[in-house]
Design a protein around this nucleic acid. Structure first.
Lengths: 209, 209, 209, 209
DNA sequence: AATGAATGAGATTTCATTCAT
DNA sequence: CATGAATGAAATCTCATTCAT
């Protein structure tokens, strides 16, 4: 018997379960993950999982909400570091590009995207969770920065939203193939090369005259 | 009583099963798809499925092989249409871009990518199937064409493989978000806009002086 | 709604399953017995059987452990009744012989031996279960008694272990044929005759001069 | 296409199947043996097995008939060697005993008894096959010899049938335990010891005054 | 006569979920 | 509130048997 329980104990269990669910879903996939397994990983009884989250699907959703927020946080932190560099746009963009790429190729990010992709047909609202909480916020933030740079005369961008999307695409578009869908890690040098190459093309297209 | 049987009958059943498997896996996902369901869709007994394919995992693999080949065929046909346009590079690229986008946003292509993505952790060799049979062949073909255009002085490309990858990325990089992972169809006008926008950026970066 | 549950309830179910398994395995043989059938006989859900015993093979093992113990108990009770008879050795031996024969020809004993015999190739440890828990204990106990009678001058036995084995053999050696492997019951008179005949031969060999 | 077929080919196939069935049933048990496996072992198609033997149960029966005959032959050959030894009854009996024991502990004999024991509940007529074709014939032959020896004054036996049964019992009664139901081979020395010990007890009981 | 192919029925096992304590 | 226990429904896979060639 715990000496003190109360709201704190319950909350602790809730997040232990969420962490466990994230881990197990990432490792095994939604269908292959057993609620037993999640409960064991969290150190609680299976019924406790149900009393907190209702059912397995909802557990997935909540886990994806948390992971999407976590991923968004990391990405936004990077994008918000993209301030007016006073001259070295290329350096600033390469720096942001590389750090975004590191976020993107993180194990947990791959797992998040894989889970959304895998289950979107069964549970279409998962797309909204991921896109709304992570992808579109990051894109919007990036568009804001690009606009700022454009206003500052460092870039020449007509449509910042599209430019932001294309910046991201150039950066991450080949990653499925290169990492075999997140199954294989890339050497740091390769990451840096990809970032440089993406920024290079981006600047050819959007550098001021 | 079947009208005709013999060796042809067996082959017919095999492909009926493969078609059914593709359909059902696409509709329900690998784990949620029952072999019962596939057998019913194919109009054969469950045991026949097993006698042809051994187990469910192998059925998935064979289905993905077939779908990868089919997708590659369609994409290659488009890419191979990209000949020296004698002046109107933009028009030629936009045409190819749009048609590639149509391939890419096809229901079956989405299903293929979703299945690979979803199951790559459990069955890592599926990545090889998809990448080796489809993605990398298409990229290679596109690189070949870009090189030819570069040689012809229509483009100014140093590294055709990377340029091809970037062309594809600009084209398809935003599609997860726009189609909600293939869950939502896009109006033709939007597709055309995306193609135009991708080509525009690509040409800004790679058009000759 | 059950009138009482709690820890007692689980134990009750466990033994209900064990009893049912014993019954069904005896009736149908291991391979032909369905876990469905056992669950139905026990009045529980199939999954409950699995949650208690893990798999079918283990269920067989546990059932055989219980049956071996039960059989050993009955046999040992008989053998331990063989005290110094003060003169009438023949009578005492015939009495024990007949009662051992009754144990041996019991339906459940036949079923036990049949199951062990049938499955020993697949699950070699079953031999250990049966021999270690039943056969060898009974033989040892019988050897002890024969030694005591020998010490008391009622028998003339050099090697009690072998003598005990031979006593058992004379008694049960012909039973496969007579009962058609336990498929046919014997009249009490025949049993008594066999016991008498076995004891007769035994005493011819081991009675004191 | 075989160069010549005809009745001889069919007969060859029939016995190939029977041999294969015997092998596979012995190795795996009746229920675990697949008709596929038997057909493969025999080098024929599964349907051929059915066209020759009708169903699996009948295949078992025919295999057991053949094996029972084979076992009987071997045992009878031994027993029939038990002629009037002119003085050395013990030596003659020990010789027969050892050779019978060798028959009895043969792999194939164990397999035969195991199959009969295992399946007798499902197919009660198997007991008749085994008992009628092997066990009782051997016992009868042995009774004949014992009677002859008795007439010759070498033994003193009132009831030869019972004596024969007891001779066999003394010999084989402990073999289940010693060989763990045929799962473990015995060293030749142990076999010889058992034979000697059985004959010793037998002669104590049945040697002439 | 022999076979390759197909199948219906059933086997074991798993799992998300509920309920009484 | 947390849990151990129980379960209904379904999943994958197997196998004896038949049929058309």
């Amino acid at each position: 018997m715990p000496v003190t329980t109360g709201p704190r104990g319950r909350i602790d269990k809730r997040s232990a379960i969420l962490v466990a669910a994230t881990t197990v879903f990432a490792r095994a996939g939604y269908a292959q993950a057993g609620v037993d397994e999640i409960a064991a990983e969290a150190g609680v009884a299976k019924a406790t999982v149900y009393s907190h989250f209702g059912d397995k699907q909802n557990l997935l959703r909540e886990a994806l909400v948390a992971e999407s927020d976590r991923a968004a946080e990391a990405n936004l932190a990077v994008v918000e570091g993209l301030l007016d560099p006073g001259g070295d746009v290329r350096g600033a963009l390469e720096d942001v590009a590389l750090r975004l790429l590191e976020c993107f190729t993180d194990e947990r990010s791959w797992a998040l995207r894989r889970l959304v992709t895998a289950e979107v047909v069964q549970f279409p609202d998962l797309a909204d969770v991921f896109l709304g909480r992570a992808a579109s916020r990051v894109n919007q933030a990036l568009a804001d920065r690009l606009l700022a740079l454009s206003v500052a005369g460092e870039l020449r961008i007509a449509d910042p939203a599209t430019a932001a999307e294309q910046f991201g695409s150039l950066l991450t578009g080949g990653m499925d193939a290169r990492t075999r869908f997140g199954t294989r890690a890339l050497p740091a040098a390769e990451l840096a090369g990809i970032a440089r190459s993406a920024v290079d093309t981006f600047l050819r297209a959007f550098a001021p005259v």
